[in-house]
Computed example of a mutant assay.
Amino acid sequence: MRRGLFLACTLALGVAALLPAARGRPAPEPAPAPDGWKLTWGDEFDGKGIDPAKWDFDTGNGFFNYDANQWIAGWGNEELQYYTREPENASVKDGVLRIRAVKESLHGCGYTSARLRSRKRDGSALFSQTYGRFEFRAKLPTGRGVWPALWMLPQDEKYGPWPASGEIDVMEARGQEPTKVLGTLHHGARWPANTHSGTEFVFPDGGTIADFHVYAVEWEPGEIKWLVDGKPYAAQTFWWSSSRADGGKGQKPKGEGDLNPWPAPFDQPFYLIMNVAVGGKFLGKPDKTTAFPAEMQVDYVRVYEKVGGYAKPKPRGEGKLPFVK
């Protein structure tokens, strides 16, 4: 994908609904921005490598939970991969970002892969935004136990540790179910009083995640919509957030007074994440039929904001709060 200088293209960046989901190849020249939106940030991956001004890496096979004073292996999901920043796991070629899960041993793990994010490891922002249209054009690996994802986390944990401050999954897929993707919100109080809600999308007409598709969310105050190839398939207007905790563990709220003000936690800047995980509780382990390397290709990432700004938050939609019996 060759488009010349990124700055020369900003007024011509594309509409998900107008971009063809070409099978196995990058997109053609982009069409104008979606009606009612203007570009604020993006990466066309037209350079010779991953741009360090836009992306940093998570590395390893877990994280330290300071509240519990313990190491959480497998990223809390029993994942099997060790994330690196090596070119074998993450590189740019022919205008496409390639994230590869490889079957190899490293630091006690049987697989390596990569997880890119628009936030530095020291916590400072490379890019984050509150509200907008967040759009990825990607083709995904298939095979049992392969878990590609495009998602978002809060720049700062304003309401407390995950997921009291929220998580927006633009798209995640189980490699053994190549005709489906999921769009999900994680919210509630910190573990174990957390919750999530989401919707599954099934591709029509024999389509699969192995083809290029455009995955997007349109996030506005009090409402989040999910789209595939420019067509909405889900919307959520109900969620909740509580900072109530005891001994480092989240507690269910006892009443409205324990809730953070609506539309928390989805009222703060979020940053972007792209990764391919292997195994875990979400989808199970690979088996002998799973082909490695398993590669996700990302043609572009584009973020927009709404022309004219945003209306006041819509009221919380219908749903069951944890203290309502």
Rank of each mutant, 00 (worst) to 15 (best):
R3G: 11
A17S: 14
A17P: 04
A21V: 14
R23P: 00
G24C: 02
G24I: 01
R25H: 02
R25Y: 01
P26W: 11
A31D: 12
A33L: 05
P34I: 14
D35Q: 15
D43E: 14
D43C: 06
K48P: 14
I50Y: 12
D51P: 06
P52H: 13
P52I: 15
A53H: 13
D58G: 00
T59K: 15
N61F: 15
G62R: 06
G74H: 08
Y82A: 00
Y82G: 00
R85W: 13
E88N: 10
E88D: 15
A90D: 03
K93R: 15
G95Q: 09
L97C: 04
I99F: 05
I99K: 03
I99W: 03
R100F: 08
V102A: 02
K103H: 05
H107E: 09
C109G: 00
T112C: 05
L116S: 02
R117H: 04
S118F: 01
R119G: 03
K120L: 07
S124Y: 07
S128P: 03
S128C: 08
S128H: 09
Q129F: 08
R133M: 11
F134M: 14
F136R: 00
F136V: 15
L140S: 00
L140G: 04
R144P: 02
G145E: 02
G145L: 10
V146K: 07
V146G: 07
W151V: 10
P154R: 07
P154M: 07
Q155Y: 08
Q155D: 14
D156G: 06
Y159N: 05
P161Y: 06
A164M: 06
V170S: 03
M171E: 07
A173H: 04
A173L: 06
G175V: 07
H186N: 14
G188D: 10
T195W: 11
G206V: 13
G207I: 15
T208R: 09
I209A: 05
A210W: 06
D211L: 06
F212M: 15
F212C: 06
H213D: 08
V214Q: 11
V214K: 04
I224Q: 10
W226N: 03
L227F: 12
D229T: 06
K231R: 14
K231Y: 02
F238G: 02
W239P: 00
W240S: 02
S243L: 08
A245K: 13
K249D: 03
G250M: 01
G250E: 01
L259Q: 02
P261G: 10
P263R: 09
D267H: 06
Q268R: 13
Y271Q: 04
A277F: 11
V278I: 11
G279I: 10
G284I: 12
P286F: 10
D287Y: 14
K288T: 13
T289K: 14
T289W: 08
Q297V: 02
D299Y: 15
V301S: 06
V301D: 03
R302C: 07
Y304D: 02
E305L: 05
K306A: 11
G308A: 05
G309L: 12
G309V: 15
K312C: 01
P313G: 09
P313D: 04
K320H: 15
V324K: 13
V324T: 13
K325S: 15
